[in-house]
């Protein structure tokens, strides 16, 4: 059997009177493309935040690559090889596209020193060019990030996450707000990235999920409703009831 890269056990968290995530467990094997779906407010983003350490869990524990990372600060989790792309695009707005990605690539190279120019570190600039090429932003390398179109900024967000050379990539609605053609190319990109890195993603668009995911977890009101392969999820009566009705 292939090892588990991520294992969450009994994650639980309330905010005041709202029980956002109720006793959710999750297992993501190496190389998977695992999707989390569920209606608005079902606790998907909170679950992500519990995994990354943005939110401390009330109960439960998270293991990343065999190590306990429960409640560990995000930067530390990131250094262990977990990267995240954001639901609300988060890039370095006034830096160039190249510098955005270079900063992330530099993090992976552990060259955080102050006695030599950053641009002289060949391995980092090479990695940056590679990622830009893969994501398809090479033509925009000298553009200021905030001048990019919404779709390109979403892709830059993804490129930053990718450049840190993660072993697990968390994608929070990578196609949010994208046009149908942008969505299609992003789906293709995610599928391609999955060849190198394990992906755990939140997605709203059902057609996106069903075509690429290897496993799907359905959340409903903070609870795990069902988990299985895309076909099973699609045909499961309870899932259809709460989620798919009207959306497919």
């Amino acid at each position: 059997m292939t090892g588990l890269i991520l294992k969450a056990e009994g994650l639980d968290r309330s905010f005041g009177g709202i029980h956002a995530v109720k006793d959710v467990s999750l297992e993501v094997p190496q190389g998977a493309l695992h999707a989390i779906i569920g209606p608005n407010g079902s606790g998907k983003t909170t679950l992500f935040n519990l995994i990354t350490g943005h939110t401390k869990p009330g109960k439960g524990r998270v293991e990343f690559d065999g190590h306990d990372i429960t409640g560990m600060p995000f930067a530390k989790v990131a250094r262990r090889g977990l990267a995240k792309s954001y639901q609300i695009t988060t890039v370095f707005p006034l830096l160039t596209v190249f510098e955005n990605v270079r900063i992330a690539a530099q993090a992976a190279s552990h060259a955080n020193v102050f006695w030599r120019p950053a641009d002289s570190i060949k391995a980092v600039t090479r990695r940056t060019d590679e990622v830009l090429e893969k994501i398809g932003l090479t033509a925009d390398r000298d553009a200021i990030a905030s001048n990019l179109s919404h779709g390109d900024q979403r892709r830059l967000d993804l490129a930053i996450a990718l450049a840190t050379e993660p072993r697990l990539l968390l994608l929070d609605e990578p196609t949010a707000g994208m046009s149908p053609s942008e969505t299609a190319s992003t789906v293709e990109l995610v599928r391609e990235l999955n060849r190198e890195v394990t992906i755990l993603m939140i997605e709203h668009k059902m057609d996106v999920i069903l075509s690429i995911a290897s496993a799907i977890t359905v959340l409903h009101q903070g609870e795990k409703l069902f988990e299985g392969a895309p076909d099973e999820v699609k045909s499961h009566p309870k899932v259809q009831e709460v989620y798919l009705t009207g959306s497919l």
Binding site: A75, P93, A107
Partner: peptide, 12 residues
Amino acid sequence: ESEERARGCGYN
């Protein structure tokens, strides 16, 4: 530009 994102890259 974005402290959150810098942290996400693993920087202290």
